[in-house]
Design a protein around this nucleic acid. Structure first.
Lengths: 152, 152
DNA sequence: CATTCAAGCTTGAAATGTCAAGTGAACGGT
DNA sequence: ACCGTTCACTTGACATTTCAAGCTTGAATG
């Protein structure tokens, strides 16, 4: 087997630290300022961008990288908080459509600026436009190699 | 407030996908092939690199990005599996020292090659040495901005 | 039609993570 | 020596996630 060189190892460990701490930091900020966890924010955000502020559960699960089961629990909690409503699809009863309520939208709207400010100060403003573009490209290159078929 | 430009947003979303899927993929591989979760692997790995295969709980918590409480639970489970032993420090009874057992070391040794192969195929071999170095530098730049004082 | 079958989601229990409070050991002042 | 504090964990309660069924709806087959 081929081990890692010193340089590879160093870069990899830097990346690991990023993978560990950046989501943690984002989560802290959202919870502190908006009583939302990352998944919840993502659910609200993705719904808000969709036509009719509505999405099928399975589609929502995919874009938020949550298993259907996990999403089901998350949405149930968001529903109890009044941020989301669920209803069976008229045309195909197997589908469940989740809709963002006005209250959910307001919560998202209140949370977004602080969230954006936070990622701007941690990521966007720390790198040059060129560096950021490259980072995005490299990230995309890696995720393209990941087999996500077993998710859900 | 300052929103994100289209280009910034695109790069950011790429990074978000990386933050979501890469840890997920690593976790899958470790669980499937070695019955270990990421945290557990990290604990075993860090212990194995330490003199006497021993570390204080707080030091271990820091390098694994786990709260002391979480680490305490994790190590308890590893202890039940026979991979780790705990003992109070002789010189200062407040410290708890965790030690990797032979069985724990063997488990780690069995898990490491597959893990390294996996990250090599997903990350290391996908980027040129130069790209990897830059990725590591950018990651370090970002983590340097994160205030980790509230962790633990 | 009735009968499987799969898809899309939900559910409940077990595993895991987080939070707040508790424990005991060392330290610093008196 | 005594008192209060801080440090390093641990613990138990609670929240969340995962895992393994289970349910309901529509499609496919006979």
């Amino acid at each position: 087997m081929q081990w890692l060189t010193a340089s590879e190892l160093e870069s990899w460990l830097s990346l690991v630290r990023l993978l560990m701490w950046l989501p943690w930091s984002i989560d802290q900020q959202l919870r502190r300022d908006s009583k939302l966890r990352i998944v919840e924010y993502q659910v609200l955000a993705k719904l808000s961008e969709s036509p009719g502020r509505t999405m099928r559960m399975s589609a929502l699960a995919e874009v938020t990288n949550a298993s259907l089961s996990r999403l089901s629990h998350v949405v149930e909690r968001l529903e109890r908080r009044g941020f989301v409503r669920r209803a069976a699809d008229r045309t195909d009863g197997r589908y469940t459509k989740a809709t963002l309520t006005d209250e959910g939208f307001e919560t998202l709207a209140a949370a977004a600026p602080g969230h954006v400010r936070h990622i701007r100060s941690l990521v966007i403003d720390v790198l040059s436009p060129e560096q950021l573009r490259r980072l995005g490209r490299d990230a995309a290159r890696i995720t393209a190699r990941i087999d996500t078929s077993g998710a859900g």
